[in-house]
Design a protein around this nucleic acid. Structure first.
Lengths: 343, 343
DNA sequence: GGCCGGATGTAGATCGGTCTATGAATGGCG
DNA sequence: CGCCATTCATAGACCGATCTACATCCGGCC
């Protein structure tokens, strides 16, 4: 029976000789269905190859869809988060959809809005540049879990790495190796605005704090860059034209890869310039790369975010703020600081 | 006016003192709206912060959403495709959503089905293990563009790399370097089933053809592996335990990274074993990796796929099968074959 | 003045589900 | 045997848009 249009619940009801409501009950596993009816309805569903339209369900009930907004698909750390998220969704009947934003700022708002318009039952969003007020208004309508945001709203949950601790691990490691002229390569001022709660803002703050605490105020140097490897490469090259520090602490691994590339173009090795990244992306452990980095368990973060979201979908309202303990993976890209020429 | 629920078209109509239909017309830029009404309605939309529910629109018309199914989020080649796809969507009013499958076989069907259930206006899917019949049934209901499928259905469009040509480039390059004992590392037999039209199937076929044509029938060796870097690493290690070939042609770059990792664990360099990948992922050009690979312009493929899909959404019905010309990026991972000990 | 046609606006059906309120059938029990 | 509680099934309102068919208004023209 090849029909032009897909079967609807009406068709199934007719085929099984029952009412629409009955079919709906069977689908939803609701109370009040006799075994015989369930059997007949299921047979009809199979015969017609029926699948409920999600749009129609969403009009009244839920869409059984969770949305996740990603600022930059190219960053492999996000792939880890997705992997964890899908794993946590196995067997729950919920489907994950990803809305890529791929540009900074307003794009994130657009992508999150697109998910909300699509009636997703919950939203996971990754640290976009969005005001807490906007998010609280959103969270009043749909459950929200924010990844990598350090503000503590009561309206939404958060899952974060402990970026202060992570930064402490990095700086202490570099100090122990004897580094003093340590440059921090990070995102734009907009992204790292103090108090924004963005991970990059906190890492920057930690960098400044530790440098000052170590009496290295005059060695502080912050270099700004964009959000992908290529801009990090270019901005590192620009830095090296001016000054060659003994170590560079880079805001995340994707950017760090650009820095490593620039260093190699400049024929500088880890002996001369140490590099530390953040995220411990898969490639960091690759022998030819061997990038020292802070691990913050992306899969675990994605999994936890989805779990929290499902709890909220099921009715929880008290906020939960979950923090992942970071650990430093020391690898070949960090070495003892070279002897500085006495100035 | 903080209301618990988001504004609907009804609220806007009331606020503007017009009918629902009038608001709908303004939203859709439809014919028959006076400038004065347009203005009043737009003011009401702004005042109430109104956004149309996509689910409700999808019930009648279209959802203004395109879906893309991805078999394995971790593969950076797919990130390129997404980047191209989102770029092509800029300013069209359509939103892209990604459904991750992340496991082989049936999972792809599930993910594509999930997109169809969500009433997307069109679907891009990446070379899943799906029968042409199933796809044709799907394509009868919703426009479909398949990436990396070499079958030529009239029901859906395809965008592919020319894998035969790509493989020819690889094999010729290796032959010129003097290699004879060339192993091909590829996916499971299920994935490379002859005639399936899967890129891996074609690459395998090309490998076999060229080996035979070069009179190297007895050197043919095909090793199977899973879909991620880690399984490639393990299976390469298993291979090396038995035999060390002079070159390994790997099905794609993600797997090739696993092979490189295994070789380095085995303390083998490019001098002893050459490696060629496929996709020319960003990391391949990284100096410390320097993986020879076949470039097939992922961004261009994603962009083209979306363009074709939009054409179909707008009514085109004749199928288009688009092929991207590959090019070989020769890098440090391929060297002249070491002198073989005379057997 | 009456008629016509184009422009503008509206009423109401419709999409495919969910869910509440209600009806019908069944069985237990005094 | 009649009453009530319980189980099973259904009718029909409802969600928020789109879109067709129709009503109204207005000016122009004979």
């Amino acid at each position: 029976m090849t029909q032009a249009r897909a079967a609807t619940i009406e068709d199934v009801a007719r085929e099984a000789g029952v009412s629409r409501a009955a079919v709906s009950k069977v689908i939803r596993n609701a109370y009040g269905v006799s075994p015989s009816m369930r059997e007949r309805v299921n047979a009809a569903i199979a015969a017609l190859d029926y699948r409920p339209r999600v749009a129609a369900r969403a009009m009244r009930g839920s869409s059984f869809t969770l949305g996740i907004e990603l600022p930059h698909i190219g960053n492999p750390f996000f792939a880890k988060i997705i992997a964890g998220a899908t794993a946590a969704l196995q067997g729950t009947g919920y489907q994950l959809i990803i809305a890529p934003a791929d540009v900074d700022g307003e794009e994130g708002v657009r992508a999150i809005g697109a998910l909300a318009d699509r009636q997703v039952d919950g939203i996971v969003a990754i640290s976009p540049l969005v005001s807490p007020e906007w998010l609280e208004r959103l969270a009043a309508r749909v459950p929200v879990v924010m990844l990598g945001r350090h503000d503590r709203s009561t309206a939404y949950d958060t899952v974060t790495g402990d970026d202060l601790e992570g930064t402490r691990l990095v700086m202490e490691h570099l100090f122990e190796l004897g580094h003093r002229r340590i440059v921090h390569l990070t995102r734009s001022e907009e992204v790292t605005r103090p108090g924004s709660g963005n991970p990059h803002a906190i890492r920057l703050e930690g960098y400044l704090t530790h440098m000052r605490a170590a009496g290295l105020e005059e060695c502080i140097r912050v270099v700004r860059t964009g959000l992908d490897e290529e801009s990090a490469r270019l901005d590192t090259l620009a830095l090296l034209d001016e000054e060659v520090p003994t170590a560079i602490f880079v805001g995340n691994d994707e950017l760090a890869m650009g820095t490593l590339r620039a260093l190699s173009e400049y024929h500088l090795t880890a002996e001369q310039v140490s590099v530390v990244g953040y995220d411990d992306v898969d490639i960091a452990s690759y022998p030819a790369i061997s990038l020292t980095s802070v691990n913050q368990a992306g899969e675990a973060m994605g999994e936890r975010a989805v779990r929290l979201l499902l709890e909220r979908v099921q009715g929880r309202t008290e906020p939960i703020h979950f923090s992942v303990e970071p650990s430093l993976k020391v690898r070949g890209s960090t070495r003892a600081a070279p002897a500085e020429p006495t100035p």
